[in-house]
Design a protein around this nucleic acid. Sequence first.
DNA 1: GCCAGTTACGAAGGAGCCCATCATTAGTAG
DNA 2: CTACTAATGATGGGCTCCTTCGTAACTGGC
Lengths: 399, 399
Amino acid sequence: MSNPPPSGGDLSRLRQLNSLAAIRALRGAEPLTLSVLAERTGLSRPSTKDVMDELVGLGWVEEVAPVGGTMGRPARRYRFRADGGHVVGIDIGAHKVLAALADLDGNVLAETRHTVDPDTPTEARLDAIDKAVSGCLALAGLTREDLWAVTAGTTGLVDPKGRIALSTAILNWSGVDLAGRLARMFPCRVLVENDSKLAALAEWQRGVARGASDVLFLHAGRRTGAGLIVDGKLHRGFAGSAGEISLLPLSQWSAGSAPLDDSPVVPKGTPPQDAARYVLSAARDGNSAAMESVERYVEVLALGAAMMVLTVDPELVILGGSFSRAADVLLPPLRRRLAEVCMRPPELRTSTLGDECVVLGGIGLAINHLDSRLFGAEGGSATPLPQHADAKVTSIASR
Amino acid sequence: MSNPPPSGGDLSRLRQLNSLAAIRALRGAEPLTLSVLAERTGLSRPSTKDVMDELVGLGWVEEVAPVGGTMGRPARRYRFRADGGHVVGIDIGAHKVLAALADLDGNVLAETRHTVDPDTPTEARLDAIDKAVSGCLALAGLTREDLWAVTAGTTGLVDPKGRIALSTAILNWSGVDLAGRLARMFPCRVLVENDSKLAALAEWQRGVARGASDVLFLHAGRRTGAGLIVDGKLHRGFAGSAGEISLLPLSQWSAGSAPLDDSPVVPKGTPPQDAARYVLSAARDGNSAAMESVERYVEVLALGAAMMVLTVDPELVILGGSFSRAADVLLPPLRRRLAEVCMRPPELRTSTLGDECVVLGGIGLAINHLDSRLFGAEGGSATPLPQHADAKVTSIASR
DNA sequence: GCCAGTTACGAAGGAGCCCATCATTAGTAG
DNA sequence: CTACTAATGATGGGCTCCTTCGTAACTGGC
């Protein structure tokens, strides 16, 4: 009756689990002693030592000099070798290409930005991606061979194979086999994902949504989008289109920031990319026409958000995207409207990761993927570190 | 960075996992031989034997007479002792109380129905529940002490503690501490859940949604509701209100079957509970006014469904509820409308479990709960069968 | 400079779980 | 009655984990 297939466990699987637990405890933390590590993993000290010996041998972990000053014999300290490999997150937007290079801990080592246009031809856009990543690598003194995984986030609907199923924001972007093109560019695993989903992941991993099991991330910017964390996991949906509420005309999400851009308070001749900011700022200063426009914008935003909130009932809603800088203006009406329809309105928070949300989420997804590959999926033992974790594969992570 | 806490594994945990795998393989199947069992669990035969010996000792499994006729030495056969314990699922609707008693395999052994009204007083309704369950027990020759878990499903919003947060269909039902009241009634674990959620679970466990990882269940009846399976698990949401799209006035779901009930084709004097059926039947026969009413009804149903489908992107949408008997009339327009807004419209199927959906889901939830308690949550060994699995607890399963 | 106190390390012994192997057993087929 | 088949049961070995205990390294007081 229960659907999950029965999974019998071998002896070595136990070690796998424990190794993974140790790595998780180590990652992102300062170097830990055996005793602390034993406590955190729930293992005994001798067993922890065994696990550490193995991981040190494989190159995943290294010992660092003990620190003195305490009573008693100084404890050995181990740290995760975050510098053993590197990942890249790329944010491919309509107006920019942003790339960030990080170590296996997710620490960003270099970042590069290139400006593009919505109608930049596809080849030129791919070229900008190439240059952005090359720039990061140069800044960090690395080569493409040092990359273990690359994640690209982009506007539009990304199908499970990493192709752009639909994009209205970037000219001729629909139909591009982005995963395929990037796979030719990088000698490592390539993942492709929708940008709002990556932003949601980033907020959940290292932003204001940490620890929540169900989260709705709202991207409020020139385009409106959403990403969902459900039960502590990024939710993609069967075809990768979870959260694409803009496909419903009623939602009006496809209009993006139009309610702001078209506000009568925008001075003639304002460049379109500055219009919304102007209106939000004017609304903050009490301009009643601007406030009206903001109200209209939030009405649309809130309607789509309400649909998703009532569907998923998340603990948190995160407001992100470039307009999140005007959270003081946007949050109160958004909160009010959600409260009107929810029995228990979710807590509203503002993104703190800002512009880097998408690349950070990409980095996080890449690292998650490597984690899941840390131990040979088919019951093998741990992969030694110096090798590349994957052969060159085109398709996106299934799950 | 990763949020899931590292979980160190003890040696005995391996055995737990393997025992659980064996039970899963055994449950709901005909008696299995050691060889088959070994193959299905991935264990070796000697290990499988060990596990079986233990489970037989604990009373969870028993050996049955070997079957002859094959070449070679007859193999011992083991079966899950489904009759070792019993669970009850209760469907508390506005117009009926339906209870079903099942063994640990989910086989229904007895069923009882009581008729009530939307304005039946709470105490009388609780009395009907009591009577319905007593009836089941009497039919099966059991007593309340034989019950290991009871799940009640009811219309309305059920909070995480098993109280009715809001119900518009049943008079004075809001605010009732159903879990608390039932806990006084039964000397075992009591779970309370929204009825549409249980129906979704049933369809996923033993209905037409088997094997799908993301499913939307639509309850189309006098009231409209929904339940979600996300990533192979019943999704409740932070406050248990996932899928409660009817709270959004725009969805018009709170009107339920009104577009059908109010159709001009309904003859004066038709009892309200028969109106919708009459219209659906007339529409099937080609009555254009009836078809128009159906069109209006489906428009509402489809709008809410689209909101949820675009949010979650499920693989399947299941049409259930009493109107699902008119699926031939309802599905085509529903399919058409979903196709208008979805990049990849989910497959639409009709519920086959019918009226029993909710009680079956309740039985499934109860069994799932017992499964998760099969092995002492805090690393203990397996619970012997003859004891009750739980003390009397009031609150609902958290997860 | 020495000694007590503190903390961590490392080795040894033991238990649990799983696996591979092989002789044995209980049937069927001729 | 014999040959064949397929499952059983017992043995031995390997791996992982745990507990226990003696040893090592460093601090602080005399």
